[in-house]
Design a protein around this nucleic acid. Structure first.
Lengths: 343, 343
DNA sequence: GTGAAAGCGCTAACAC
DNA sequence: GTGTTAGCGCTTTCAC
């Protein structure tokens, strides 16, 4: 690997000058510049990011904290995040969250002492301590939440408007003639979860339907809890709902599986809709109606927010709520295809 | 962030001594060691990996090249890879492969000048140039292939025995009484693909069945090509097969979708089996019979190989072929559950 | 417009 | 057992 010294020697100039043309940090004589460019070319030189980081305390790397690896939504999100970051010249290091809060904090520290330039936190649902630690870190480096946390401090955040989303999708079910609509609710700790819940409640109430607490099941984001929710709605409630809205696709798919296991038809016997639009949702039968999160845009905005905060550390934090899109498929609409042909 | 200097000052010793206790690189007086440990504790010091890398040319980071993000198998693999690497104190940086071979090489270079300590290549299916470049790089740093490439040079590799796997699964179908068994073949460029194909061919022949070329469809790993394969087998061949074996779960799922769209029943009208055991395979209906890749073990072995090569650069390269496991589900066996209850 | 020199935080000879 | 020193590859004053 050629170093800046090699380039300087070959071009017959000092390393300073080479650095200058590399970073455009001061005017350089055109002839000198050309000599240097030629040397760079010939030596196939690229500056060592490590050495740069040593001086500048920057690493052109951003840490991404992903809640659990269970939900494929995060895999997809991560991909777009990686793409968006790369387009800006950044690498991405993943930090999955574990069990022990203290381990997590160690891990975050580990990232920080790799001089990462910022942290993007995807829907963290772990320990309060870790959140606090992240909030604290955000004084020192950009921390972007892909979520709408219920915290007093106005953090930098980007997320899909869950209130609007669930309201839209519940409205769709109401339009389809359903009167008894159940909801699989996410754990209520954070605002993003409550937003979705409130979207459901308001849609039901505004349509003049009766809101029934027993039609709300609290899931834990895992597919199994969607399955359990399906079982609950089919066996434990007084009047069986004719439709189910789930706060995530994955739980909706879990519920579908229970319903199918009982020999019931979707959507004829019971309609079902999710939220996210993960890849799986179009593959399964019947394909799942859902509210698509604008995942690519979310990723781009998050990286944008990060870059902005990096360049303007004192800039006011922003919360960006993005609209998603209602995707109607067979699971709520019998007129749609039983199997998607465009995979 | 405290530095080694701060620790040295606080402990009243030189930085060298601190470095020594940090790295256990020379004996240190017990009393001195304790003083230093105390200072480290008090300052909450952790060494800067960047600065360490500056000297040692190591970064405690490994680059992972993932072929496409379409197949969820790679998401799952990546997770285990990350876990295994972390357990060894390594971070993982992802390098997805793109369209342009020259871009890819740039990207690999970019990783290398971040001083990554090695590269793990997952089933790369891209440009020949890139492979060459990687092979060339492997002279300088450990490169582990998670694949069995058809190259003359004996690389470091770990992979699931595809011959054995597909032979097992085809054998299972034969045991179930099938005589006309079709195969969705992967692109044949690399050994790993041909292994699977040969497993199919040998299973058919050894069972005394007639091998028919028209029952082999060449897919491109995407789900859509599985769908196309299903269509081909149902509409273009003389005698419709009663069973289909696919070289990947994803293509099997694509084929299932076509079959279901035609109103046929799986496995009654046609049985189908895959290879991989991705998460989706147990969620869909009917659940998919498959040959499970020992993904966690693959990841662990790959990281092990990497570490070993790092510590013994001149060690002979090894190819590790792992056995998988036949997972029988409803898609080939009517006696199994229509829907998995354990998600 | 250009260069010399210091220094980022660390490790590794080399001395003592 | 411990300290001094050089230097990894780069950026950045400060001179000229």
């Amino acid at each position: 690997m050629a170093t800046i010294k090699d380039v300087a020697k070959r071009a017959g100039v000092s390393v300073t000058t080479v650095s200058r043309v590399l970073n455009n940090t001061a005017p350089v004589n055109e002839a000198t510049r050309e000599k240097i460019m030629k040397a760079i070319e010939e030596l196939n030189y690229t500056p060592s990011i490590i050495a740069q980081g040593m001086r500048t305390k920057k690493s052109k790397t951003v840490g991404v904290i992903i809640p659990d690896y269970i939900n494929p939504f995060y895999h997809e999100l991560f991909k777009y995040l990686e793409d968006a970051a790369r387009r800006e010249g950044y690498h991405v290091i993943i930090a999955s969250t574990g069990e022990e809060a203290s381990d997590e904090i160690c891990y975050i520290n580990d990232l920080i002492n790799r001089n990462i330039d910022g942290i993007i936190v995807c829907s963290y649902r772990g320990a309060e301590e870790t959140i606090e630690y992240l909030l604290d870190s955000s004084k020192k480096l950009p921390v972007i939440f892909m979520d709408n946390l219920q915290v007093n401090k106005p953090v930098n955040a980007v997320y899909t408007d869950g209130y609007e989303g669930v309201k839209t999708i519940t409205g769709h079910l109401i339009d389809m003639g359903h009167k008894e609509i159940a909801f699989i609710k996410p754990l209520a700790r954070y605002k993003v979860a409550n937003d979705r819940y409130e979207g459901y409640v308001d849609a039901v109430k505004e349509a003049g339907l009766i809101f029934k607490q027993e039609l709300v099941y609290e899931g834990n984001y895992h597919i199994q809890s969607g399955y359990d929710a399906g079982k609950y709605f089919l066996t434990q409630v007084e009047v069986r709902p004719t439709a189910i809205v789930s706060a995530t696709d994955l739980m909706a798919i879990g519920a579908m599986n229970y319903i199918k296991s009982q020999g019931l038809e979707i959507p004829q016997d019971i309609a079902i809709a999710g939220f996210d639009d993960i890849y799986m949702s179009r593959i399964i039968t019947p394909p799942l109606t859902t509210y698509r999160q604008p995942i690519e845009k979310i990723a781009a905005e998050a990286v944008g927010l990060f870059i902005h905060k990096l360049n303007h550390p004192s800039a006011k934090n922003r919360q960006i709520a993005l609209k998603g899109e209602l995707i109607i498929r067979r699971s709520t609409d019998i007129k749609k295809q039983e199997v998607e042909t465009l995979l």
